[in-house]
Design a protein around this nucleic acid. Sequence first.
DNA 1: GCCGATACCTAGCGATACTAGGTATGAACA
DNA 2: TGTTCATACCTAGTATCGCTAGGTATCGGC
Lengths: 112, 112
Amino acid sequence: MGSAGAVGPQLSRGEFGLLVLGLLGRRQMYGYEIVSELKGSTEGAIDLAEGTVYPALRRLERDGLIVGFWVDTRSGPRRRYYRLTPQGESALDEGRADWARFKAAADTVLGS
Amino acid sequence: MGSAGAVGPQLSRGEFGLLVLGLLGRRQMYGYEIVSELKGSTEGAIDLAEGTVYPALRRLERDGLIVGFWVDTRSGPRRRYYRLTPQGESALDEGRADWARFKAAADTVLGS
DNA sequence: GCCGATACCTAGCGATACTAGGTATGAACA
DNA sequence: TGTTCATACCTAGTATCGCTAGGTATCGGC
């Protein structure tokens, strides 16, 4: 699934997971950073709660799409950074394609 | 809610409801028609199950965004048509704006 | 009379997004 | 010293959603 099926199921459920994946496709990041980066880079249009992001990261790691590792800091609590696995890169590619198709389809329906 | 908040919550939960609303913004339709119309006009990219569409229609009606009415047919079972209420039109406008913002934000994140 | 296409509906399941908390670290300041 | 703040992580519980997998009913054609 993912590449062949209709977009609906993919995007409706793993939508935000895909966005997290997209961020991690640029560079490795930690959860708290992802929350503020998402909000900042989208001018507040996408403002996910921590309670959304942390479980999403766990699911992505559970599914083998990302790997996490602890990094100690000089100031403040340690951070758990994540980066994409090869599987994650593939999933991101598929996700981007799914997103493009869904976007086009939704635009057709919404008449934008 | 709707106009002011971040797009995420709106779209992730009412996403398909918005698409149904978008179809009904063009003309009144009945459930079964919506299913095939969605699939057809998006070339299969959006293929919602009946078990998705009928409950969505009930929610939209419950929320006052659409109204349904039975129409007898000469051939086959009767149909329940739906059309937008004034509230539904406003919600569709807001939904389109939300969609545009979310689309732009997601494109930024996904780098498309 | 039976089958297929149409057209509606729902219970139950799995998954998600969010709320509303909680814990812990280190810096700044009095 | 100790209190507060920003950082940074986590999770239980709740509401809701999309889907599966059924079910019912109407009408035309054979």
